[in-house]
Design a protein around this nucleic acid. Sequence first.
DNA 1: TGTACATCAGTGAACGCGCGTTCACTGATGTAC
DNA 2: TGTACATCAGTGAACGCGCGTTCACTGATGTAC
Lengths: 183, 183
Amino acid sequence: MRVTRAKAAENREKVVATAARLFREKGFDGVGLDAIMAEAGLTHGGFYRQFGSKEGLAAEALGRAFAGSAAWQAGQPGLRAVVDGYLSARHRDAVGTGCALAALAPEVARQGEGARHALAVHVREQIGRIAAWLTGQDEAARRRRAIATLAGLVGALALARAVDDKDLSDEILAAGRAEFGGA
Amino acid sequence: MRVTRAKAAENREKVVATAARLFREKGFDGVGLDAIMAEAGLTHGGFYRQFGSKEGLAAEALGRAFAGSAAWQAGQPGLRAVVDGYLSARHRDAVGTGCALAALAPEVARQGEGARHALAVHVREQIGRIAAWLTGQDEAARRRRAIATLAGLVGALALARAVDDKDLSDEILAAGRAEFGGA
DNA sequence: TGTACATCAGTGAACGCGCGTTCACTGATGTAC
DNA sequence: TGTACATCAGTGAACGCGCGTTCACTGATGTAC
């Protein structure tokens, strides 16, 4: 049965937000449209009235995940605070709401143009944000350091999650905080 | 029809090596047993005489991928050469034969105990290898720097592959070489 | 403001397909004598 | 060394299942008058 335009927009939002979480938790191939729609409180049949394909939803959900993490960093808390939050046990244990780069980067490399472009835009934004917090040297050197910092954060979080040894995982997070937190 | 024990062992090797490549290229969920067995020159029905399950093969193939990259680093070429090779356009474009950490870490985080343990063992080995190349400071500081270097290499390669912009991808590799190559 | 009807968001069944896994079978290998 | 037979690596068909996608339908919403 038809719903109001406002309700339809709200439902669409819910699907994108649910997908953004489930893709991060289970990977693009690890969750089906059925599960996404069900968790959003809908039946799967209505999916194609709102989205072109699963790949289209993946690109849109990735953009949503990036937008969420950008909002989470609003208020310019500075490099130290961002690095400590990023490489925290809390972030490591919250894959579904955490950084989509650490959760999905290698899978995005196999995705279509939409998802890969959304990732590139986000990477450029994060490089700029980190570079603005850095001090000393010339601008080119600060940008290089910002890129290395972003890569270090993403790699450390991904490794801390993949390892089966909690002590090693904690050590990776602590080493990253120590090495990447200085401006 | 039955084959010699030597041929059977050779076939098993071929399956593991093929899986190690295809999993890196397409992800654990992105390739089926059918495709793996076919590329290894066998039919899929014989799979369960050699392996317990797809997850079991995944763990074994991951160990194989790690063993391959360890062999690739034999001869102790030093940190500079390893970093330059790791963050090269060639390595970026050779996912199937390249570092399994950069290709699969987030997916391994969702895999079973076998794969996650194999990854942890490899991470410990790589940390030790890198730490041995570092100079200055005390041992704890060198180990912290080794962890950060490994994380930076893995993150930079994963981001360079995921981005849809070749210039940005090359810039990420170059920044990583500049920042992580010093002992 | 009230009525008549067109629109369309969402439903639920169905589609073909490929997945991981099982199994009866084949026939060359390996072994016992 | 030669023969008889048990073993078992690999084959190919089949299984139930969940996937992405399609479609006829429903009925409340939105619109034209």
